[in-house]
Design a protein around this nucleic acid. Structure first.
Length: 289
DNA sequence: CTCCAGGTTCCGG
DNA sequence: CCGGAACATGGA
């Protein structure tokens, strides 16, 4: 429906659109036949892969090229990974997956809502928030809205957000939005900080701990070294790198991840995450789930 | 019904 | 610093 007759083409080698949009890094894209439809910031974009080409809404070539990170040097990134069997298997499984450049606030806000929620639920909440608060597109395609600004969320009531199934997360999202809206935390200023300082600053926001901060850094601030450790990644690390070892504390896992996976650790993390979650490569008790 | 999900925060060793 | 528990909601 309403698909433009002529989509613009741009070269996209070593890229897998489906993998990129379904690996759990971004949650609002919707599939329409062979085409993906979603907002990139305030722009509605059609995206469809045809071999080594990405076909997108005319006029959105630059936006799409940047968003889908077609400039990331995937060969170099893969070559930077440790050469252990688990990492090699994950990288092979995730060939063509790229970490997209998400808008800072939309990324941060989405991951504030992500705690103790399944990927499907996160997508559901994201859609509900966009529909309830986001500005509808003037082009008239229903069902696609830009993510509401911090100011809009800051002015919302907790009841409004709980109506989006946020549960206890509603309070955190509003409080974080207010700190950003009133300048107490400056997201664009965080860009100038080094990883450690940026993480500390993000953690000042309610509902933002180390894991969510690392997701925001990795997916929203282009910090490709950031290594979020969630329940899945913790299982992967324990199962694949600390098999049969006891007294492995969270701090120990963090230190290991920070040193073992190198300058593109965030990419390694996303590959391991997706491989574990979809590829069923873990031990029997996990794979049986 | 039970269990768990891309956690954070608070509280007592 | 570490482990436990509370915190909402919905799907398997």
């Amino acid at each position: 429906m309403t698909r433009p007759i002529g989509l613009a083409r741009l070269p996209a080698t070593d890229f897998d659109l489906d993998l990129t949009l379904t690996c759990g890094q971004v949650f609002h894209w919707q599939r329409e036949d062979r085409c993906w439809l979603g907002m990139i910031g305030g722009t509605l974009v059609h995206a469809e892969q045809r071999g080594d080409e990405l076909h997108v809404t005319p006029g959105a070539e630059e936006i799409a090229h940047r968003y889908f990170a077609l400039d990331h040097p995937l060969s170099e990134i893969r070559a930077s990974f440790p050469a252990d069997p688990a990492m090699i298997a994950a990288a092979d499984f995730c060939r063509g997956m790229r970490l997209v450049r998400q808008p800072e606030w939309e990324c941060l806000a989405t991951f504030i809502t992500s705690s103790m929620k399944q990927v499907a639920h996160i997508a559901q909440m994201s859609r509900a928030i966009r529909e309830r608060f986001g500005n509808p597109r003037p082009h008239g395609i229903p069902g696609h809205f830009a993510y509401p600004s911090p100011e809009i969320i800051a002015a919302a009531s907790e009841a409004d957000l709980r109506a989006c199934s946020l549960g206890y997360r509603a309070k955190n999202l509003i409080a974080a939005a207010r700190m950003i809206a009133n300048g107490e935390v400056d997201l664009s200023a965080i860009r100038a900080l080094d990883d450690e300082a940026a993480r500390t600053e993000l953690c000042r926001l309610p509902g933002v701990g180390v894991k969510v901060a690392n997701c925001a850094l990795l997916f929203g601030f282009e910090r490709l070294r950031a290594f979020p450790i969630d329940v899945w990644i913790e299982r992967v690390l324990r199962e694949l790198y600390f098999k049969r070892k006891r007294n492995v504390t969270p701090a120990r896992l963090r230190d290991f991840a920070a040193t073992h996976f190198g300058p593109f650790g965030g990419y390694a993390q996303q590959y391991l995450f997706h491989h574990a979650r979809v590829g069923k490569n873990l031990g029997s008790e996990v794979a049986a789930r």
